[in-house]
Every structure is written in structure tokens, then in C-alpha cells.
Design a protein around this nucleic acid. Structure first.
Lengths: 115, 115
DNA sequence: CTGTATCCATCGGGATACTG
DNA sequence: CAGTATCCCGATGGATACAG
């Protein structure tokens, strides 16, 4: 659901991106220089159902993170892209990613516990 | 539940802090210079139940974010604190907070839409 | 092609009572 | 004081079929 009022900025931001598929969707939209079609998103995230893809996109849209453009053609064509606000999230997402790679993924390294 | 393997660092980090009460708990532990007792946490977050407080603390502990110290006294005394790893999350949490204050909370300002 | 509409299983989280 | 043990509900997300 769209975000509810709350006083903690961190919790608010978490709420914006909470949802099983929002990060993968965000990543795809961020990486693409061009707007991305519905079907393209679905192919990029094979395990997502149409219901969930639509739901998550609607929430991201309601929260001003994603832009939705409908082209009234036949067959229909709908394109999604990040809003400026959405793009600006990359600032802290990159920091999160850095932290994750440093503190979680290192287990994958052959060399462990090298303090 | 403790975090499951996954390839996206951002999703991994989200998983670490997903849980209705983890951010409030983190904040309290971060702010306190001294370790915090169980009852103190409960008083600081009045609406949390014992079950949830215990659950969330256990998960944070399993994920290496929180330290748990038991003093075998009577009555029992258990203290919680952030691990070094936990403390280091403040780096991206601060960036998230900044973004949240800039992009979500400004509605509270009297002056709006001043592009 | 881009969705909606139903129906349903699972699970996070809450209320309450009990315990070492 | 610091938890466990149960019981339970509502929301989240999945499967499938249908529609413009």
C-alpha cells in the first residue's frame, strides 16, 4: 500500500521500497536508459506474476518513484521509468549496496576471517 | 527470520532490517552510549509486546547486528547493544534518513511547491 | 499486450497467560 | 525481570482464469 504517515524518515523510506519485487523492478528501471515496457519487466523478472508486477508498479507510482506512460495503440503499450525522485534514491541505495557487499557477501570469498 | 542467501546486496540489507520494530530498536541502541536492558527497550517502545521484542532482538542477534549479554543474577538482567557491524550501518541509514527528510517529510513545511 | 478478478495458502505479528 | 507458550487474525503474495 502507499506509505502511511509516520515520523521516522528511515521507516518511511523502508516502507517505500518494502515489497518483494520493488528492488528488482527499481534496478531494471535504473539500469535501462530507455523506458521499459511491461512485458520487458516481466521477462526480466521471470518469477513475478502479472498481479504482483502490476501491484508493485502501482505502489511505486503512487509513491512518486515510478512514472507510467500509456500509449493508446493496438496492441496496448505501457512504458515505465523512474521519476527524478526515484532516481535520486540511488544515493543511499549505493551506500546500502556497498555495506552489503562488505559485510554480507564476503563469505563467498575463499579467504575468511582475515581481520 | 535470519537472512537467506541471495545475490542482491541491497535486498540482503533490507532483509536484515525488515521487521516492524527493528528500526526503533536500532535507534534506541544506537543513541544509548551504554548497553540497554530488556525492560528499558520495552519502556522505550511502549506498543511492542514481549514476544515481538524478543523475536526481533533474536533476529538482529542472529544477523550479527545486536549483542546480547546475560548476567546470571537474581533477578535476571540482560543487556543489549549494537555490534561493530551493527554500528557501521549508520553510514547508509543516515543517508536514508536525509533522503526521507528531503523527499517525504517536507510536506510538513508551511511552504510547499517552491520549485 | 497489458492488465483485472477471484480464490487461496502462508506468515508476520498481536493478545494473553504462564514460567525460571 | 526477562522471557515462553498458545492461539489467532489480517495482510501479503501466489495460481489461475478472464478481459479490453
Amino acid at each position: 500500500m502507499p506509505v502511511q504517515p509516520n515520523d521516522c524518515p528511515v521507516e518511511l523510506v523502508f516502507a517505500l521500497l518494502s515489497g518483494k519485487w520493488k528492488i528488482p523492478i527499481y534496478r531494471k528501471l535504473y539500469i535501462s536508459t530507455e523506458p521499459v515496457r511491461y512485458g520487458e519487466l516481466q521477462r526480466h523478472i521471470p518469477s513475478i506474476t502479472k498481479k504482483m508486477l502490476t501491484e508493485q508498479l502501482r505502489e511505486l507510482e503512487a509513491d512518486g518513484i515510478v512514472d507510467r506512460n500509456v500509449y493508446p495503440e493496438t496492441p496496448p503499450k505501457v512504458e515505465y521509468s523512474l521519476t527524478a525522485r526515484g532516481r535520486s534514491m540511488i544515493a543511499f541505495l549505493d551506500r546500502m549496496s556497498d555495506w552489503g557487499e562488505e559485510h554480507i557477501l564476503p563469505d563467498k570469498s575463499v579467504v575468511q576471517n582475515v581481520e
